[in-house]
Design a protein around this nucleic acid. Structure first.
Length: 674
DNA sequence: GATCCTCGAGTTCT
DNA sequence: CTCGAGGATC
């Protein structure tokens, strides 16, 4: 049965009106009707849709209630990566940032867009032909999770863009957050229903966004603010960042009203101070301000360094500090036997979380700060993450406060504690006798960047080691289901999951395996270098210190650590056992040794962007033939490889009369045609 | 021998 | 994130 024309028109009218009010409320922050009036319109539309189910449209404002739970989140790859920003903590750092920008752009004065830095979660929204089709979390910056159903429940995110001719494709970057008042009422509800309260709005928002059941998200009252554009197709690209944000606002997306175009360091510092004053009065929490070079052409010229843009910086507010008391100072034993003093603190709420522990790093550091048990101390979260004891309040020191002394013997295994004369750390000399070191070695072995055995966490390793069920990493590969049966809190299902993860880890890479061994001074980067250089584990194991030193970035100390590790019969045995259990990887030919390649002993410096090859690819090609790639030009440099937008290094090369190659020239050289 | 840079290792909380 | 140490460079 067709819906009467009049009803259809009525529904359209209501939807348009509700969307207009949403726009005024969320985007312009200037509601034109009372909440009661808005509710009345909303109810009327709901009723109409209820009476005429065929009216229901997924883009109707009534459809923001969430749907049934999904089994999991899909992974989404961002078309352009969502990078993080570098931080500045002082005026000096901001001045240095501005200076770098001016030098690179060769101008005297830069126009910036300044805005608050939201303490929320970065997300990306994709609109096709003006329709909201996908929303994703930032994730690691390259891939995130598809949270579209959850974001559909966020009322300030338009399901359709305003205007007659929306762009064919638009990817909007912005932040999801929770207003303080919504956070307070959420916690009130949690309290009332005897559920766990959230520590801060950020966590509540994060929890809300990661719900598999979007109906829960809908109940969290999340907000969204846009601050950038990832991809535009089918519309003119704005000339400046501020113009882009104005345009986003015209399209119906909420953009922060505190944003300002300012000039030079003075403008930046004025904005910083102003936001510091306004901070407490805002609806949402911010942890600093962001400055972006306003001209998009200039942004492009500035480009990126590793993972962060050179055209923007986050100027953070000073970390919040709090007072608390040192209840005890305990000692932890790390993978290498390092003894680390840790302060147990009376719980204190600082920077959005309750802190109970803080590392004191080592004996010297502890002495410098002179922290004693019973002391009253000032605590902050360094870089807003890791708790740190800033200072002791000396006036409040009780008479009985006890100074800490590093134990003479290991608190875990009783072995002697040794501190080498020119080292800062004291170490347990017990080696693998020490249960703490064995546990840490296993955790390292299983960690994500090593063998990546999911589910083999601290609790499980504690039990396995305490029961002597596992002594070495090789033992992991010889465990059956039965070994888990007697463990506490281990259901058969989760035991199977761990076994499966262990099984999966057998298929690995040489670099991961070398890293997993936990050789002293051999981290991820060195392990990769070793794998590339030797190509096979046997060749690595047979290498003497002399041969090891040929590997870039390996000097006498690291070479000694590696040789010593493989000289140990026990270590060789464990490796053999693992190989016998089926741990395997692909081996390759050893890379041409530096003294043999065509480019042996030649030093290269790369600058600018080459048309086809990436920096890493070029580096690999040069190193494959025994050449070296250095960071800066000096008299020792043999060639400079320059691409587009080459900078000071090219100038220096010309000054010193060093041959400069372009990509084609480099390729010819590599092929031996020169 | 001094200095810059990168890597390794240890750490917190959700 | 922060510190310390190792390596490379001048």
């Amino acid at each position: 049965m067709a819906v009467p024309k009049a009803v259809l028109a009525e529904a359209h009218k209501l939807r348009a009106e509700i969307e207009r009010h949403n726009y005024h409320y969320y985007v312009l922050d200037q509601p034109v009707v009372s909440d009661a009036e808005f509710d009345r319109l909303f109810c009327k539309l709901q009723q109409l849709e209820h009476e005429h189910p065929e009216l229901v449209d997924p883009e109707s404002p009534t459809q923001r209630v969430g749907g049934s739970p999904q089994p999991e989140f899909r992974q989404v790859t961002h078309r352009t990566p969502m990078l993080s920003l570098n931080n500045a903590f002082s005026e000096e750092e901001v001045m240095a940032f501005d200076r770098r920008v001016r030098e690179r752009l060769e101008v005297d004065r830069v126009e910036y867009l300044a805005e608050p830095k939201f303490d929320g979660l970065a997300i990306s929204l994709t609109y096709e032909q003006g329709r909201f089709i996908r929303g994703a979390t930032r994730g690691d910056g390259y891939t995130g999770e598809d949270v579209t159903p959850n974001l559909r429940t966020v009322r300030s995110i338009p399901l359709r863009l305003r205007g007659k001719a929306p762009p064919g494709l638009l990817e909007v970057r912005g932040e999801v957050l929770m207003y303080r008042r919504d956070f307070d009422s959420l916690n009130q509800r949690q309290r009332a229903s005897d559920e766990k309260e959230f520590a801060n709005p950020r966590n509540a928002a994060a929890g809300g966004l990661r719900q598999l059941d979007s109906r829960i998200t809908a109940a969290r009252a999340l907000r969204f603010f846009a601050y950038g554009v990832g991809v535009i197709e089918g519309a003119a690209v704005p000339a400046s960042h501020s113009a882009a944000e104005d345009w986003l606002q015209d399209l119906g997306l909420p953009v922060c009203q505190e944003r300002r175009v300012v000039h030079a360091v003075q403008g930046l510092m004025r904005f910083y101070q102003r936001m510091g004053e306004r901070r407490a009065g805002l609806h949402y929490e911010i942890d600093g301000v962001v400055y972006k070079v306003n001209s998009l052409a200039a942004q492009q010229r500035l480009g990126y360094v590793s993972r962060a843009p050179r055209f923007a910086i986050a100027h953070k507010f000073p970390a919040e500090e709090a007072n608390t008391e040192v209840l005890a100072i305990e000692v932890q034993v790390g993978r290498t036997g390092a003894l680390t003093p840790v302060a147990r603190l009376a719980p204190v709420f600082v920077g959005g979380v309750t802190v109970t522990n803080a590392t004191l790093h080592n004996e010297d550091e502890l002495q410098r700060k002179d922290v004693r048990v019973g002391d009253s101390v000032i605590v902050r979260r360094a870089g807003d993450v890791i708790p740190e004891v800033v200072a002791v309040v000396r006036d409040k020191r009780p008479k009985h406060a006890i100074a800490f002394k590093m134990p003479m013997t290991c608190p875990v295994c009783g072995s002697a504690v040794v501190r080498l004369p020119d080292e800062a750390v004291a170490r347990c000399s017990g080696g693998l006798i020490c249960a703490a070191q064995r546990k840490q070695a296993l955790l390292h072995f299983a960690s994500r960047r090593a063998m990546d055995i999911e589910g083999l966490g601290e609790k499980l390793v504690d039990q396995l080691v305490d029961r002597d069920a596992v002594k070495t990493a090789a033992d992991l590969y010889r465990m059956g289901l039965a070994a888990f049966a007697e463990l506490e809190r281990m259901a058969e299902k989760s035991a199977q999951n761990v076994l499966q993860a262990i099984e999966r880890s057998k298929n690995t890479t040489l670099a991961r395996f070398i890293f997993a061994l936990g050789i002293r001074n051999v981290g991820e980067a060195t392990a990769k270098e070793l794998a590339r250089h030797f190509g096979s584990l046997d060749r690595l194991m047979q290498a003497d210190e002399e041969a090891l030193r040929q590997v870039p970035d390996i000097g006498p100390v690291v070479a000694f650590s590696i040789a010593q590790f493989f000289a140990e019969a026990h270590n060789r045995e464990v490796i053999e056992q693992m190989r016998a259990c089926g741990v395997h990887w692909e081996e390759s030919e050893p890379r041409v040794a530096a003294s043999l390649g065509r480019l042996a002993g030649k030093a290269f410096v790369l600058t600018g962007t080459l048309p086809k090859l990436s920096r890493d690819e070029v580096k690999e090609l040069i190193e494959a033939q025994g050449g070296k790639v250095a960071g800066s030009v000096s008299r020792k440099t043999d060639y400079v490889v320059a691409g587009a937008e080459a900078g000071a290094k090219l100038a220096k090369a010309e000054e010193l009369g060093i041959p400069v190659l372009d990509e084609a020239g480099l390729l010819e050289l590599l092929k031996g045609k020169r």
